[in-house]
Design a protein around this nucleic acid. Structure first.
Length: 226
DNA sequence: GCGACAG
DNA sequence: ATCTTGTCGC
């Protein structure tokens, strides 16, 4: 995987790209019903010393959570980590992994945010707009956003707030365990995004899709040659 | 001006 | 993200 021609090289250019693509986000669709079709988890692992990034995409059968297909891609680090610009660091290699899949991804579940973003255009929205696929973000941290503590039971949630604007939800996926932070990416409603997240979490805090993608890209990074 | 800050 | 062993607990 090569870094695409015209890929932003500076923060200023990256901000301009976000501004340009933000208008492509579709928010008036509900998205696929949970438990049907394919759900694909994507994640990335880095080796900055070797300037290597490995992305993984794992397709699950939404009904059984069985793994249907998986793919990886190796690339160069395309952008430094800057809060709010994470997508520019991950997307080229993630796209390559998605393109290497032998089947349609269905709903894409990202490790990070969608609308819960300083400019309402996080990784899940960016990836959704570029691929046209329905996408959601499930993050492990609240970033700069605030929220009340959801009730202790799995399934309870509270609004994730940027000031007074609701940009996502803090969703409890296991009784008494720290919530995850769900936001809409593209072509999915927040209610459906939360329903999918719950359908994907059986025994662990994080969705099976991201857990499998995480395991796969770490393994592939160790085996990657340069 | 000084932190905080998805992964 | 990544650097890193054992350890407490269900």
């Amino acid at each position: 995987m090569r870094i695409p021609a015209g890929w932003p090289a500076t923060e200023e250019q990256a901000l301009a790209v976000q501004d340009e693509l933000r208008g492509g986000v579709v928010l008036d669709e509900t998205g696929p019903p949970p438990g049907t079709g394919h759900v694909t988890g994507v994640d990335v692992a880095y080796d900055d010393a070797r300037d290597i990034v490995v992305a993984a995409a794992v397709v699950l059968d939404a009904a059984t959570l069985g793994t249907v297909a998986e793919a990886t891609a190796v690339g160069r680090v395309s952008f430094p980590y800057v809060p709010g610009l994470l997508a520019f660091r991950e997307i080229p290699t993630v796209l390559a992994a998605l393109e290497a899949l032998p089947c349609a991804p269905g709903l894409v579940v990202c490790d990070g945010y969608g609308l819960a973003h300083p400019r309402r255009f996080g990784l899940a929205s960016h990836l959704g707009v570029l691929t046209g696929l329905p996408a959601i973000g499930v993050a492990k941290n609240p970033f700069t956003f605030t929220h009340d503590d959801p009730g202790p039971a799995r399934g309870s949630s509270s609004p994730l707030l940027a000031g007074t604007e609701e940009v996502g939800r803090a969703l409890r996926t296991r009784d008494g365990v720290k919530p995850v932070y769900v936001s809409v990416g593209h072509r999915v409603s927040i209610d459906n995004a939360c329903a999918h997240t719950l359908a994907l979490t059986s025994g662990y805090r994080l969705p099976e899709s991201t857990r499998r993608a995480d395991a796969l890209c770490r393994r592939a990074l160790k085996e990657a040659q340069v």
